[in-house]
């Protein structure tokens, strides 16, 4: 599937269905096809060594949004978070999936940028439990 013709075919199907990201895992191989409709950072790697503690991780695929499109403020507020609280969103088309706090605690700096394209398991925030 990695020859240019197959990739073009897949890209055409993705565009027709409004799919932004396609991930394929096969054995030890891992492909990620990204439709670059808008200019935005694609890198999902943490910009700095991750601090110790717990992390909120992306549970889906989408572009990172720190605030809801209907809200002017980010969800993270004063830094105190509750287990299960929505801290940010992963947007794919109209769909918004939550980035959830894994525990009660205090939120640390973001480990990815607004608009970054994240996939399953990518770290979004460090959380200091407590």
């Amino acid at each position: 599937m990695t020859d240019p013709q197959s990739l073009a075919e897949i890209a055409r199907h993705m565009a027709a269905r409004g799919i932004e990201v396609l991930e394929v895992r096969s054995g030890d191989r891992h492909y990620r096809l990204v439709a670059e409709a808008e200019a935005a950072p694609v890198a999902a790697a943490p910009p700095s060594p991750p601090p110790a503690g717990h992390f909120t991780k992306a549970a889906g695929i989408g572009r990172l949004r720190f605030h809801h499109p209907q809200r002017g403020r980010p969800e993270t507020g004063n830094g105190a978070v509750r287990k299960g609280q929505v801290l940010a969103y992963l947007q794919a088309g109209l769909l918004l999936q939550p980035v959830l706090a894994p525990c009660d605690g205090t939120i640390g700096p973001a480990l990815a940028e607004e608009g970054a394209l994240l996939g399953h398991g990518d770290k979004v925030f460090a959380i200091r439990p407590g």
Partner: peptide, 14 residues
């Protein structure tokens, strides 16, 4: 419904 729920962007003009 997945854990934490899910949503959609509001219509333009909200």
């Amino acid at each position: 419904i997945p854990e934490g729920g899910f949503g959609v962007a509001p219509p333009a003009g909200m």
